[in-house]
């Protein structure tokens, strides 16, 4: 991004700020997470630790709220349980990860543009550009950005645990914000491979670590711009569309299960959740 670049692309740059993201995407990676299938087993979360060099912070720091789980399973009890003796309808599980918003609120507030929108529709976080102002997480309604409050390298990976570290992405040191990347290293590898073989990426050719691990297949990952991908079909099936939220938009079929969390904040999340199904007759 030189001066020339700024001058030439200023209008695009500005519009990006107003309307969110790019206008010519190469891919738009997205997900569909079926809460009917999610059993809250933590497989995805652990897979994420394994794939993405996530630091184990230990009990004391976990207590302080400094854990680094990019993919966390939130467990909620039903509001109705307050009046019951037992949580008869079970728990509510919500896998929460970076929603890779199309109009991400984290992006405009970063003073050094360490977080920005890629042509793949991802919220990139460039670790070595980050200066640690932490505004991005303050402005994230999902609170899915994690800050390296300490240097974890020595404590989290005592030898030989450090041999497990994935060389495809860096290990973040103190003072750097990090977050779910939709396993960008896998995306990169797949894109390189497809390019080498002179073909388009095939849906299902690769998956994020969480989607791969999920025993019930609740997480579906893919390119929402590929009309034949599973994730696109799911989005279409549930009549969830990308783009800004307007109340004027013809309301989707109310019976369908697709929704995006905090869509009304106009952040255009890339993850569609499917409502949890509840038996009403018990």
């Amino acid at each position: 991004m030189s001066f020339k670049n700024i001058l030439e692309n200023f209008s695009k740059y500005r519009r990006g700020a107003e309307e969110g993201g790019h206008h010519e995407y190469e891919h738009r990676w997205g997900m569909a997470i079926d809460l009917n299938l999610c059993i809250g087993c933590n497989a995805c979360s652990t897979a994420c630790y394994a794939e993405n060099n996530l630091a184990v912070v230990g009990k004391d720091k976990f207590e302080k709220g400094q854990a680094m789980h990019w993919m966390r399973i939130e467990r909620y009890w039903d509001d109705a349980d307050a009046g019951r003796d037992f949580p008869e309808q079970g728990a509510l599980f919500l896998p929460m990860l970076c929603q890779q918003c199309g109009a991400a609120t984290c992006e405009p507030v970063c003073p050094v543009a360490a977080t920005y929108h890629t042509p793949d529709g991802l919220n990139a976080q460039v670790y070595n550009r980050c200066i640690g102002s932490r505004y991005c997480n303050n402005n994230c309604p999902f609170r899915v950005r994690y800050f390296n409050f300490w240097s974890y390298y020595e404590s989290s990976w005592p030898e030989p645990l450090n041999m497990q570290l994935n060389p495809d992405l860096s290990v973040r040191d103190k003072g750097v914000m990090e977050k779910c990347t939709f396993c960008v290293q896998r995306i990169r590898t797949a894109k390189d491979k497809a390019q080498r073989e002179n073909r388009a990426i095939v849906d299902g050719e690769f998956q994020t670590a969480c989607a791969q691990a999920c025993p019930t297949g609740a997480i579906v990952f893919g390119d929402t711009m590929d009309p034949n991908s599973r994730v696109t079909k799911l989005w279409q099936e549930h009549e969830v569309e990308r783009g800004p939220y307007t109340s004027k938009k013809p309301k989707q079929n109310a019976e369908l299960r697709g929704y995006r969390i905090f869509e009304e904040l106009n952040v255009d999340p890339s993850i569609m959740y499917l409502e949890r199904v509840r038996e009403t007759e018990v």
Binding site: N5, Y116, P119, D120, V126, S170, V184, Q185, R188
Partner: peptide, 9 residues
């Protein structure tokens, strides 16, 4: 490419 994430990981 000029995209940061092309070269930074």
């Amino acid at each position: 490419p000029g995209d940061c994430w092309k070269c930074h990981k």
